[in-house]
Amino acid sequence: MKRISLLILTAILGLQGCNSSNKSKSTTKPVLPTKPVITAVHGIQPSEVANYIAEFKLAKENLKFTFEGAESKIFYVDKTKDTIIIKYDKGLVHAGFDFKNNEPTASLTLYEGDTSDLGDFKATRMLTGVDIKISEDDDTSIYSGSVKDQVTGGIYSIRLQLNEHLMGAGDSKLIINGKKATLAGTLGTSTYIQIQEMINTTSVDTLILSNVSGSDNDAINMHTGRLIRNASLTTLMPKGGEAYSGGVDLFAAGAQRIFETGGKLGVHSWCCTADGKDAGQLSKGDKAHGAQLTYFREMLGTEKGPEFYFYTINAAPANKIHLMSVADMVKYTLTTP
C-alpha cells in the first residue's frame, strides 16, 4: 500500500567550552558528544488529527454511487494510469481520472459481480458509460449520465460522487464480542474512527487482526496505532489470520502482542515518492522515511524500531509481500520465543 511520509532529522552536538585563568594552569575539558535529539515527524500532525477526522466525516457523506435511484456506499479499491477502481454494492466502478492534472474524465464502466474476494473477481455483467458528464459541488466531483448493458442494450441512469477522502477511507469492519474485537479489511480513516469509538465506548482489551490486507492511508493509520498503544490494547494474530503492510503496523502497536502459529504477517516497501521510487530504493538518510521511523521508535523502541522498519522496506518491493518468519518476529520483538 502506498506510504507517503516526510523526515526532519536534527542532530544536536553539545560543545563544552574551555575555561582558563592567569592565576592557575590552563585546563581544557574534553568535548563530549551528546545523544542526538530526534525530532518527531508525522504525515498528519497529532494536533491536526481531530480536525482531519471531522472533515473526513463531513466529506464521507458525499461519497456515493446511485444506480437507477438506488444509493450505494463506495470504497476505493485501486487505480490504473487513467482510472479509479471503486467497489459498490453490486460490483466495481471504473471511473476515468487524469492523475497528472488531478481531475476526473468523462468515462465510466460498471462491472457487476461478487466483490467479497477481489483477487478472484469475475464480472457477470458489463455496462458502459453513455454521455457521461462531469460537474463539481464544492470539493466533490460528480459523474452523471447513463450506462448501457452490453448484452441487453438496456439504458440505466447513474450518478457517482467522489472527493479526495475516498482513496484514504478504507473499508475495514470491526466486530466487537465482549472484551475482544475483530478487525478485517483495508485500513484507512474509517478504521481510526472505528477504533476510537470502540475505545471510548467499550471495555475491549484485545484486538484480533483476522484478515487485514493493508492500508490506504498510512498517515492516519499510524495514529490508529497510537490509539491502540495509548489504550494498552493487546493485539492478536490468530491461527489462520493474515495481516499485511499497514496491518503489521497495527499489530506492532499492541502493548502486548500475541502471535499464534499459523498466522501470517506480511511486509513490503511502501510506494511511492514523487519521482516514483519505493522506500527500498531510497538511502537510509532520506527524509521520506521520517514518519515511519518516528512511529516504529514509539512502538518497538529506539533501536529495534528503525531496524524493523528498514527490514520491512528491504524485504520485498511495493508490489510483492514477504511473509515474516517467527525467528524474524522474535528478532524485532514483535513476539517472544
Rank of each mutant, 00 (worst) to 15 (best):
L6P: 14
L7K: 06
L9K: 00
A11G: 11
L15M: 13
L15R: 06
C18I: 12
N22W: 05
S26G: 03
P36V: 00
V37G: 03
T39Y: 14
V41E: 13
Q45H: 15
P46M: 04
P46G: 00
E48Y: 11
V49H: 06
A54R: 14
K57I: 09
K57T: 06
G69E: 11
I74K: 14
F75V: 07
V77T: 02
I85H: 05
I86S: 01
D89S: 08
K100W: 01
P104R: 08
A106L: 07
S116H: 08
D117S: 12
G119A: 04
D120H: 14
F121N: 11
M126A: 06
L127V: 04
L127Y: 03
D139Y: 01
T140H: 03
S141H: 11
Y143S: 02
S144I: 05
S144M: 03
S144V: 10
G145K: 08
D149I: 01
Q150C: 09
T152R: 03
G154Y: 04
N163G: 10
L166E: 12
L166N: 13
L166Y: 07
M167V: 12
T182C: 01
G185S: 12
L187S: 06
S190M: 12
Q194H: 11
I195C: 06
M198A: 11
I199K: 05
S203C: 00
L207S: 10
S210R: 12
N211I: 04
D216Q: 10
N221F: 09
M222N: 07
T224P: 07
G225D: 04
G225E: 04
A231E: 10
A231P: 11
S232D: 12
M237W: 06
M237A: 07
K239L: 08
G241M: 06
Y244R: 09
D249P: 01
D249K: 09
A253L: 05
A255D: 12
R257F: 13
G262K: 12
L265V: 00
W270V: 15
A274G: 13
A274M: 14
G276Q: 04
D278N: 14
G280P: 05
L282N: 11
G285P: 08
G285R: 08
K287T: 08
A288N: 15
H289W: 02
A291C: 03
A291G: 13
E298M: 13
E298T: 05
T302P: 09
Y309D: 11
T312F: 00
P317S: 06
L323A: 00
L323C: 03
V330A: 08
K331L: 07
K331Q: 08
L334C: 06
T335Y: 06
P337E: 14
